[in-house]
Amino acid sequence: MALVLLLFFGVPLLVVVAFSFFDYDGINTNPAFVWANYAELFGSKVTLALYLKTLYFAAIVWVITLLIGFTVSYFLVFHVRSVLWQMGLFLLCTVPFWTSNIIRMISWIPFLGRNGIFNQALMGAGITHEPLEFLLFSDFAVIVAYVHLFTLFMIVPIFNSMARIDRSLIEAARDGGSSGGRIIWEIVVPLSKTGIALGSIFVITLVMGDFFVVKVMSGSHSASVAMAMSNQIAMVQYPPAAASAVLLLIIVSLMVAAILRVVDVRKELAR
């Protein structure tokens, strides 16, 4: 297993790093050691704009998925009384994980489109008279698709840590006269923080590394770092793509490291 991971993960990673230093003149790639690709990357204003846009998506999606993930897990763990129902509803939330992401994303197109279900419903109800244009092929659509695709990654780890919380702690707090809000804030949140951290790592890395949702759901009106990279790859501009991959990798690793600094996830995973 270590061998497979090294061969298909470790080595390729090094190759990407190597390629990022290769000489590239717009047409040909030559093995070399030059900083040109990085100079170009940092010299471009587009880079900054791309990162800001991607971080903007990541931040919004993170907040929404966290709120939904926490609320759904809280409901499942503390309000559903029968274990059978609990597992059933939990599975209901996780089944889409095992189906195609692309299909799930595409399914928003007929829903949000100009003549889509949502617009038809709005107009049918007399709320609007003209179809809303901003629904599809916009940042809004991108965020909806992200939330739709990635909330699961938040629910599963949070549910897992919440399910381990000893019920008697909550009852003790309630007997002690704590209000519902305080119990959530002072007991449930701290005790499920490993789950929150794990979910956050998943969601943030997934958004940061995404290219196809942005491409399809924004109708190419918006962009992300990984999408720009995939465009470069499509145009066989490997060394610049590799350079931007390395930068992306560094930034994602820093974000993950930051989360790990706040919460020690290792214990949770190794159990």
Partner: peptide
């Protein structure tokens, strides 16, 4: 790791 990076690598 973002999937596209693995693919690229």
């Amino acid at each position: 790791m973002p999937g596209i990076l693995v693919g690229l690598g």
